[in-house]
Amino acid sequence: FLFLKLENKTKGQLQKQICRVVLDHFEKQYTAELGNAWNSVRDVLTSPLCWQHSILLNRFSSCPELENSLCVQGYHPAFQGGLPYLPAAFKCYIRRTPERFPAQKHQAGKLKEYYLLNAASLLPVLALEVKDGENVLDLCAAPGGKSVAILQCACPGRFHCNEYDDLRARWLEETIESFIPEPLINLIMVSKLDGRHIGDLKPELYDKVLVDTPCSNDRSWLFSSDIHQATLRLIQRKELSYLQFQLLR
């Protein structure tokens, strides 16, 4: 049954249509910026099966059967020895043959067992080396994967998850509700502040700050079904670098 679900999802991905407007824009921009390297980058961007997704286990809803099943299916730990910071409770799996694992649906009052995300997204979390009791700010937190990952590593004394966009903030709240139990969830503050001003509002309050600034999200827009929205997004992405600079200053 699980194999059939995966197979159906894979077929659905293969049927995605590339938005020609976006691809043409990328051809011009990235050929100039990357030169010959753009050819291999384009191959990955246009092939969803090449995107390496990982499975981050939720330590608050541990399931030994799931971990054993992953090993049987050829998954292995994404991060192994040699890293300066790798908490024992932090468990993430990938497999050499790219494949999408079925996502779990949100169910009120029930914790999910795992979170699906790109393995590279976890590197900033590990680099932060969060310790129990530290005050942590996730400045641009939605959809919440890195916030969940931080809580797999440690229990901050104060954890502030911020997301300025209303829709994404609701997504963030749902993610936290799906992965974090009481009473820990009561120690998490979710806000919708303009991240450019938090440093002035709360100077020197946080020990660690994670800033995953808004990005162009090229992979998603490349498969956009709305040409008008895709064109508008291409115009808006030109302003992202200035916003990123303001958030990081």
Rank of each mutant, 00 (worst) to 15 (best):
P156L: 06
S241C: 07
I185K: 09
P183C: 09
E65G: 00
P64Q: 07
I227R: 03
L210P: 05
Y30G: 08
G199K: 02
V148G: 02
T175C: 08
L248A: 14
S62K: 04
C63L: 09
K16G: 02
I176F: 01
V21I: 15
S191L: 11
Q104F: 06
T10F: 08
G81H: 12
L57V: 14
P203G: 01
V130G: 06
N58Q: 03
Y242R: 13
L137I: 08
L122Q: 12
N68F: 06
V209S: 05
Y75N: 05
L139F: 06
L201R: 06
K9S: 04
I188H: 08
D24H: 12
D207E: 10
R249Q: 13
A32P: 02
Q236T: 06
N58P: 00
W51R: 14
K5A: 13
I185V: 12
E113W: 12
I185H: 01
L14K: 08
Q13E: 14
A169I: 00
E182V: 14
L187A: 15
A37L: 10
F79R: 01
L116R: 09
L248N: 13
P183N: 10
S61D: 03
D212G: 11
R20C: 10
G12E: 00
P98G: 07
N36S: 15
D132R: 14
G74C: 13
S40N: 14
D132H: 13
L232T: 10
G74M: 12
G35A: 05
A141G: 03
K11A: 06
A78H: 04
W51E: 11
R168H: 08
A149Y: 01
L137P: 03
P124S: 15
S220K: 10
C50E: 07
C155I: 12
P48N: 06
D138I: 00
W171N: 07
T213E: 03
P64V: 05
G145N: 03
V136W: 03
N186M: 12
V211R: 02
L117N: 00
L232Y: 07
E173K: 12
C161R: 05
S69W: 00
W51G: 08
Y114C: 05
H53M: 13
Y30H: 10
V130C: 12
G12R: 02
A108F: 14
R170E: 02
D138P: 05
F223I: 00
L2P: 06
V22T: 11
R59T: 02
K16Y: 08
F1N: 12
Q236F: 04
K238Y: 09
I185W: 04
L172M: 10
W38F: 05
F3M: 11
C140I: 00
G74S: 14
I227A: 11
P64C: 09
E182I: 11
D212R: 11
E65M: 06
E65A: 13
L232N: 09
H228I: 11
P124W: 11
C19N: 09
E134V: 09
P143V: 02
L222A: 00
G195Q: 01
T175Q: 06
I18M: 04
G82V: 07
Y93D: 00
K202L: 12
L57S: 07
E182S: 13
